[in-house]
Every structure is written in C-alpha cells, then in structure tokens.
C-alpha cells in the first residue's frame, strides 16, 4: 500500500486512568503538514488525547494508526522513534540535567532531519548562552524553549504541543508563537493544545473542540462563527 498523506488516523479512541474513563470515542485524521488546534475547557480530555497518542496513557482501546502502522499498544519509547514528539504541559525538564544535556537527550533517538543542537540554538539563541546551566535555573519562557528544543531534537514528523503558554508572560507567549511557523515550515505536522482560543485558532489550519472526552466540533477556523465555537466549547 503506498503511503498516503494521512499520517495519523485515530478511530473511536477510549482512554482510561484506572477506573476513570477520560476519552469516549475520539476520532481524528491528520495529514502531512497539518497544524491542528485542540481546544476545550479544563478536563475536556485534550491532554489525555496527546498523552494517548504518544504512549503515556497505556489503558486505551480503539485504534491509532501512524503512517499505516497500528501504534495503539506501543510504549512511549517506541512511538518517539517513529517520529511523534511531545512538549509536555508544565515543560517537565529534567532538573538534574543541564540545558544542553536536556537537548542531547531529546536527540537520543537519532532520527535524521534538520534539527540538531546547532539548529535549535539557531532558533533559540539565548539557550546557547545557557547551555551548561541547570535547566531549573532558567526563566519560564527559556524553559519552554528547552522543552520545544528537546522535542525537536528527535526530528519528529508530528510534534504535540501541550499548553505552551501556561504560566508564561504574554510577551513571551507572543515570541514563542511567532517562532511556530519556522518549526512547521519543514513540513512537520503539529497538534496544539491551547487555552487561548483566539491564539489557538490563529496558529492552526484546522481545529478540534473537545468536551467531556468527546469531539464536539471540528473544521477550519473560518468555517464557524465564534458563537458556534463557544457553544461547542462550553457545551451550551
């Protein structure tokens, strides 16, 4: 079968944390180069969906196909080798590793591609000045850069960005979002979780609105009015 440009195909995904069901049958399709925004209120299941894709949530049924391969049961360490990277909510850098060690570890899977230490430092010049510093000594925005850089180092074909703006100053958020097109320029796909709906819709070609573990609305930002989106968001 020739590789279609439908890279990620999720069908009827149900995810659980112990006895608690967080996703109730989510489906989505992502093509090469797509940037999809995932919006929805707290607890709608956005982070769970990202974690299910990259393998951090293992209790799940349904199907997740990546480039024609069923990755539903794969452990996280195998999924990253196939080109899906996550920038986790809250950044979660390794505190006992320096900035550069965090980045190098991100590149451990050694996939070929444009991203390397030097290109990450090119994207975020401030990091090269701080490369020997402990990752926890950086400001929030710089830590977010390390987290993005760490994900890029694996040269993913799909990058999952979870709440990039959480806890950051508006000016820093603006800077980071301005860099996003440079990241996706090479044809990398992205799924973006963002609280700020305007920003989320501005950065994406498609959006998916989630509510209580289900998809409540999806399409292109142009295709719906704010009221329609707001209804899907709050469930009114």
């Amino acid at each position: 079968m020739p590789l279609s440009d439908e890279w990620l195909k999720i069908e009827n995904l149900q995810s659980y944390y112990g006895d608690f069901q967080a996703l109730h049958g989510v489906s989505l399709t992502l093509k090469k180069g797509d940037v999809i925004s995932l919006i929805g209120s707290n607890g709608a299941g956005k982070s769970t969906l990202l974690k299910s894709i990259c393998g951090l949530v293992s209790q799940k049924t349904g199907s997740i196909t990546w480039k024609g391969e069923d990755i539903l049961k794969f452990p996280a360490s195998e999924i990253v080798k196939r080109g899906i990277a996550l920038v986790p909510e809250g950044r979660r850098l390794f505190p006992s590793l320096s900035v550069e060690e965090n980045l190098v570890l991100g590149g451990q899977v050694a996939r070929p591609g444009p991203w390397s230490l030097s290109s990450v430092y090119g994207l975020f010049p401030i990091l090269s000045e701080k490369k020997t510093a402990p990752s926890t000594s950086l400001s929030g925005g710089q830590q977010q850069m390390v987290a993005i850089g760490r994900a890029l180092m694996s040269n993913p074909d799909l990058i999952l960005l979870d709440e990039l703006s959480l806890g950051l100053a508006p000016i820093v958020i603006k800077d980071i979002y301005e860099l996003l097109p440079r990241i996706t320029a090479s044809g990398m796909s992205a799924i973006l979780v963002e609280q700020d709906v305007t920003r989320a819709l501005g950065a994406a070609s498609h959006f998916i609105c989630m509510q209580e573990g289900r998809v409540s609305l999806e399409g292109t930002p142009m295709g719906f009015t704010r009221d329609q989106i707001s209804a899907a968001y709050f469930g009114t």
Binding site: C54, L56, A76, V80, A85, F94, S96, L105, Q108, R150
Partner: peptide, 21 residues
C-alpha cells in the same frame, strides 16, 4: 549516566526521549 539521571528525575518524560525505563 544521563539516562540514569533523566529516568530518576521523571520516568514518564524519559520514556518520551526513547528511554525504556
């Protein structure tokens, strides 16, 4: 050693770096 420290810091995220804990 880096793998040891990363796994000790945050097992979950270490797996996202391709490390099988």
């Amino acid at each position: 050693g880096r793998a040891f420290r990363a796994t000790s810091d945050d097992t979950e995220i270490a797996q996202l770096m391709g490390l099988d804990n």
